[in-house]
Design a protein around this nucleic acid. Sequence first.
DNA 1: TAAAAATACTCCATAGGTATTTTAT
DNA 2: ATAAAATACCTATGGAGTATTTTTA
Lengths: 303, 303
Amino acid sequence: MISLRQLRYLDALAVTGHFGRAAELAGISQPALSMQIRDMEIELGGALVERKTSGATLTPLGQEVAARARNILVAIRDLQDLGHAHGGLLEGPLALGVIPSVAPYLLPGLLAGLQEHHPRLKLTVRESVTRRLVEELAAGSLDAIIVSVPLGVEDFVEAAAFDDPFLLAAPAGSPLADRPSVLTELIEADELLLLEDGHCLREQALQACHAIDQSRLRSFGATSLSTLLQLVAAGQGVTLVPSIALASVAAADPRLRLKRFADPEPHRRIGLAWRKSSPREQDFRALVDLIRQAAPARLEAVA
Amino acid sequence: MISLRQLRYLDALAVTGHFGRAAELAGISQPALSMQIRDMEIELGGALVERKTSGATLTPLGQEVAARARNILVAIRDLQDLGHAHGGLLEGPLALGVIPSVAPYLLPGLLAGLQEHHPRLKLTVRESVTRRLVEELAAGSLDAIIVSVPLGVEDFVEAAAFDDPFLLAAPAGSPLADRPSVLTELIEADELLLLEDGHCLREQALQACHAIDQSRLRSFGATSLSTLLQLVAAGQGVTLVPSIALASVAAADPRLRLKRFADPEPHRRIGLAWRKSSPREQDFRALVDLIRQAAPARLEAVA
DNA sequence: TAAAAATACTCCATAGGTATTTTAT
DNA sequence: ATAAAATACCTATGGAGTATTTTTA
């Protein structure tokens, strides 16, 4: 009879493509893993792995089995969560993922709120880009993720927490800096600076102003918003700043102007996503409320 | 860590509502099952079962866990089938369900065809009414079912095999017996006799002639078509006969007339259904072909 | 007091570890 | 010759059995 243990080992083998490293990943010895894989092959009546000196690759059957194994293992994780879900609200372990353009501004307030209202919650936080967070959520190594919604991922449930307007960051001397800003004016403006590819803030900003002429974009290898703002302050162009970052980056530099856009104000919507199959929906709904409270709108600070 | 073993035991407990009988069902001793359930409760951090002298009932948490456990166990079964699916076509064990109004007429030919073309198939057949077949298919104790399609069950895939026209069975003296029959004439006909409630042929016939006045129906506790035909022969009314049954029941009785309906000919569609998650789709498609070949249209025998 | 489940204990199957051999490049 | 996986052999954990006690209606 197939065991969960065997499924875990096969999963490790699928990930590593190597018996030795798979064993290490699974926390057992290489022979132990080899034996379990072999037993599985006997049980299923076909080869799962192609053994090579360079390592191990899964056969088509092996890949199919591994894919199903992953789903089953996620289902098992969710099952284990049921206990916590039926305990008090937001108690026990919870692995949360957050995108980088939100984490530093939201987490301080959120963690404080959780500490105060749900001291028995054992929260672990991972900060990464959306694509990776989605993968880890699907795989079950994260329980929920704070991202820009909608994600549009089947199997996930999303709940919006708050809208985060984009502000225009322009050099003090720019003509844009002293007028009420509307989005279309960007078309005639200086160059629009954005974060490097793969960073979700880039896509969100692009989506917010889809009318922008692609040829006038400039990408920088900058991972951080503050680097980008340095460039703006130096007169290299303009950029969009999520207002959630205001408190940290604002008026520090006199060469910078931050302005709200006139309606329709471009914004991204920040929300929480979790697996449909997760039994902790109540926890997550409560978490969304806390996220909303922890997202301070300090928009009075700007014109 | 939760084990599949524990999920199986919980499932048995959910089914029986009794530790002793659950243990018997699982093929182990009562203390062994008790201990696994207890370990599970510790692992999940909550009570799964309410212990009473009269037996055991699941708590809300227990029901939720049991429901998920069932899904996981079905996924494990399907995974085990993968091996057979990657072997030759239609090899290894296969549990097939068939509705009673099809089984006796279809199976002889089908089994012969399977024996000839797929001698390595280890087929087990269960004959039961649609509702039960659907349950067993969902639970994984059947791999595929031959039923009247469409079933409209989420999680199932269906493939039509053949259309089975309904014939009119009337007493030789009936005015219907000597005219080309059209369905609407049934409205002015003798009473329509049908099988007892729950028998799928009843629903199929009713669906085929939805125009019929409900008040003119008569149900009999008859489980078998031949009993029903005896009543028709005795002049008690008319009924619908699936043409697949022709070879067995036809012209044996001179008091009976079997007639085809004029267009649009009422019929039921017989097909195969299996779980979406089953890896043996290829097997099932091949089986559908064999079913089609095994369903002889002996319609020449009637006017 | 009777039925059901929990506990006590013993045993053994099997997963896992270490050491070593085989295999393929 | 080297790296990877399989094999051999031993150990120990934990699942299961029997016998018994506890619980509750």
